[in-house]
Design a binder for these strands. Structure first.
Lengths: 103, 103
DNA sequence: ATATAATATTCGGAAATCCGAATATAGTGT
DNA sequence: ACACTATATTCGGATTTCCGAATATTATAT
């Protein structure tokens, strides 16, 4: 599993931080909604989601052509607590569009 | 002041995470002790301390030729909480020599 | 003034990170 | 089988990060 340094490296990017914010606030979210909320190119969002997956911070569930992401349900306590603290603060710093189905 | 993403970027390095661990556990510590505890070259430690300073996570106090560092006393609550959670966990992952005056 | 100790900074260069553009894959519907 | 949609991956290249080596700075002591 990942250690605190890797965890920080993983959250040390505005796009990934924003993704974690959104997933924390909304539970399970479709990629198209994340892409719309970030107003970022789809491949960029996909690459960052892959990185969050490889770090074990999120998991994906396929439903037809859609992919739904959510925070990993079995994060260690320290990671969950840190995400709560950091993402709650970050949400006020980043400007995220409200969620809306875009596909 | 720094935002959560910058904060994470700043802690996303083993040496800087270890420095924060040591300062959190011991309060104010001399650079020579930090260098010894990390078993890292002095310029490396100095550069990372400068980075922590520029991010506002630590402050320095000169005493003769010595420099003493400690966590910034007026960190925002979210930063203080995150440091507590992350550094406490990191301390068990990193192998830090016990503190000892080396100068 | 000089020597020495503790710490900081500068200067390449190597490695890692991030992005845009293009392409690939997986699933659905006809 | 083909077209289409949603998402993922690959491939350069630009930028950033990190390090070691050398050098500079600041303060003390003689």
């Amino acid at each position: 599993m990942l250690n605190p340094t890797q965890f920080c490296r993983c959250l040390g990017d505005d796009i990934r931080m924003a993704l974690v914010c959104l997933l924390r606030e909304h539970g399970e979210v479709c990629v198209c909604e994340l892409t719309a909320a970030l107003a970022a190119p789809q491949p960029t969002v996909s690459r960052h989601l892959a990185q969050l997956r490889e770090c074990g911070l999120v998991i994906a569930r396929r439903e037809g052509t859609w992919m739904h992401y959510r925070l990993h349900p079995e994060l260690p306590v320290w990671a969950k607590e840190s995400i709560d603290t950091l993402a709650a603060t970050a949400a006020t710093h980043l400007d995220l569009q409200p969620l809306a189905k875009a596909c």
